[in-house]
């Protein structure tokens, strides 16, 4: 408690970017820009290649999972290192129900959320009472355990994974084109953004912010710290599971290797890079993490080292991220 220092907000990018951020914080320009963006993104598949659509679909998917993780890491200030596991919980729930039991895709979604809530409770309830660092290692372990479990069990197809997950049907159309999934993930991303904003501005969102800034004061004001944190953990997990279900439907085949530690790290990287807690920042982070590897396929294996060095430098010199939350200065575990 003694060493609580608040860093003054400094912006190395200069006043131009700063004033752009300011502009975006005002309602009218933000809505204008969002409308233009939406219109452009709806129009995009009509005039672009399959490759572009594939990348954009992947980007929307990343936006959803990053916003989900942002609820846990950004809003509530809890370090989560096994997010890919929750994404696997959703994907496998849908996969098993769909390919083994032949359940309609849309009906598997509630089950996927229920499974994620149960997993979130099992991990969160014991560890959220303790110091924040325990959560980091337990989630890291959980990620690995889920991977090992789906590899060892028969129902999950072992190391081979699951194949033959049914395509979802919407209004009598079987969704099997990349354009279909482009719009599906686009809608999901829009919903995720709206839900994130609504959560951020809600009573719950304020409680998260309060706990993140000063746990003891929040507790003294009558906020049940463990319970409120658990909400963040569960809501974030449900986001991940939902995205995982749609991922399973898009891929129609999933294997344990799709949910490795490195995916959790990339999602975390996007959230931290963009600016924890700031929704446009997180979206920016998701764009950076998905697009840079696509644009720079040549560097290949060096990519992760470069990302890691970038993360280190960013943390040392600009721990708030590229587009940080304005009032929230210290993110304390």
């Amino acid at each position: 408690m003694a060493e609580k220092k608040q860093k003054k907000f400094t912006n190395p990018f200069g006043t131009v970017v700063e004033s752009l951020y300011d502009l975006f914080d005002k309602k009218a320009p933000r809505y204008l820009l969002m409308t233009i963006m939406t219109a452009f993104l709806i129009y995009l598949p009509l005039s672009s290649s399959r490759f572009t659509q594939e990348i954009m679909t992947n980007l929307f998917f990343y936006v959803v999972v990053c916003l989900g993780l942002n609820i846990i890491v950004g809003f509530a200030g809890l370090l989560h290192l096994g997010y890919a596991a929750f994404f696997a919980v959703g994907a496998y729930t849908t996969g098993i129900l769909s390919s083994v039991y032949g359940v309609n895709f849309w009906l598997t979604l509630p089950f996927s959320i229920i499974a994620a809530v149960i997993a979130g409770l099992a991990i969160g309830a014991p560890t959220l009472r303790l110091r924040g660092d325990y959560l980091a290692i337990v989630t890291l372990g959980f990620g690995e355990i889920i991977r090992l479990t789906v590899r060892n069990l028969d129902i999950t197809g072992g190391a081979m994974g699951l194949i033959g997950i049914q395509r979802p049907v919407l209004f009598g159309i079987v969704l099997n084109q990349i354009t279909h999934f482009y719009y599906l993930f686009f809608i999901l991303a829009v919903i995720a953004i709206i839900v994130s904003y609504r959560l951020h501005d809600s009573r719950l969102g304020r409680a998260w912010e309060y706990i993140r800034e000063d746990e003891d004061a929040a507790s003294a004001m009558g906020i049940n710290v463990v319970q409120i944190r658990l909400y963040a953990f569960i809501i974030g997990s449900a986001f991940g599971a939902l995205a995982g279900s749609l991922y399973a439907a898009k891929m129609t085949a999933i294997s344990p290797e799709s949910f490795m530690f490195i995916h959790s790290v990339m999602i975390l990287l996007a959230v931290v890079l963009g600016g924890m807690g700031k929704i446009p920042g997180v979206i920016l982070g998701a764009i950076i993490v998905t697009l840079i590897p696509e644009l720079s396929r040549d560097i290949g294996q060096f990519r992760l080292i470069i990302f890691a060095v970038l993360l280190l430098i960013l943390m040392l010199y600009r721990p708030q991220g590229i587009w940080p939350e304005r009032q929230g200065i210290s993110t304390k575990l």
């Binding site: 060493e3 220092k5 943390m315 040392l316």
Partner: peptide
Amino acid sequence: MLKAPRLSILITALAVSMI
């Protein structure tokens, strides 16, 4: 990072691990 928020130092540790 010793005086920085706790989340930051955990993330630098993660970055070193990745490197």
